[in-house]
């Protein structure tokens, strides 16, 4: 199950060393954009390379990739077409065009991460994901319930929240849903991916600190003396926002 890890994109060199340490606590992440192609996949790869458990989704109705002209996009179905087959199709259609606009590069990256784009709305939260064990970042998310969902566009955040409200929170599992607004192009996706990794590190640090043994117990009346992870999330995001002023964020605590 262990993926041979490349050191690529290791903005977070320290966590690579922790990979072999099963005791090191890792928050479980989920990244979301419209088509599960560019922004969510860039951050998926980044988080996976930093050894975080991560999965990713798209909230659109269909996977839309740019075509030869603006009114002729390449449209695929979620969950049914693999990155690999998209790659092959586009390569056979017009390799020059799709190489030039970066689509083939993107698909090349994506097919190294997982099989194909998945749609958020069709995702059965809490369903075991053992069959995804070849995906990057799958280790730790076998149970299919992430702790943090990071969307890459406010529209996607809205769709995720609306969908969670729609599902009626049957699992009773809390989830932090954070939007990090990233423009949908390759350059911005790279920057956004770095921002998201920074956010993930900050959150994970707080979560790890919370889990360090606390002998006083939860009911000892001095709960305020050491703020827990959930409580610190707004603060962490606030500080992160100061560091990344060009990636406007929204956060809420939702329920699966």
């Amino acid at each position: 199950m262990a993926q041979p890890q490349t050191q690529a994109g290791s903005a977070n060199g320290t966590s690579n060393g922790e990979r072999q340490d099963p005791g090191g606590f890792k928050l479980k992440f989920c990244t979301v954009c419209a088509s599960n192609q560019n922004r969510s996949m860039e951050s998926h790869l980044r988080l996976a390379a930093a050894n975080y458990p991560v999965i990713s989704f798209g909230t659109g109705s269909l996977v839309r990739l740019p075509g030869p002209s603006i009114d002729k996009p390449n449209v695929y179905q979620f969950n049914k077409t693999s990155y690999d087959s998209m790659y092959k199709e586009l390569e056979s259609k017009d390799p020059r065009l799709y190489r030039a606009n970066g689509l083939l590069n993107m698909l090349e990256r994506n097919r190294g991460v997982k099989w194909g784009p998945e749609r958020w709305q069709d995702w059965q939260i809490g369903a075991p994901r053992l069959q995804h064990n070849a995906d990057r970042g799958s280790e730790g998310l076998e149970g299919g319930v992430p702790d943090v969902v990071i969307t890459c566009e406010e529209r996607c955040w809205d769709a995720v929240i609306d969908n969670l409200l729609e599902r009626g929170s049957p699992l009773n599992r809390p989830v932090h849903v954070i939007n990090v607004d990233i423009k949908d192009n390759h350059e911005e996706a790279l920057i956004g991916g770095r921002g998201i990794l920074d956010l993930a590190d900050s959150l994970n640090k707080a979560a790890t600190e919370e889990r360090e043994a606390n002998p006083s117990g939860f009911d000892s009346g001095i709960a305020g003396s050491r703020a827990g992870f959930d409580e610190r999330v707004p603060e962490i995001i606030g500080e992160w926002q100061e560091r990344w002023p060009n990636l406007p964020s929204v956060w809420t605590l939702g329920w699966f």
Partner: peptide, 8 residues
């Protein structure tokens, strides 16, 4: 009285 994480 519990921590925020428990309270939610």
């Amino acid at each position: 009285t519990a921590t925020t994480g428990v309270r939610i």
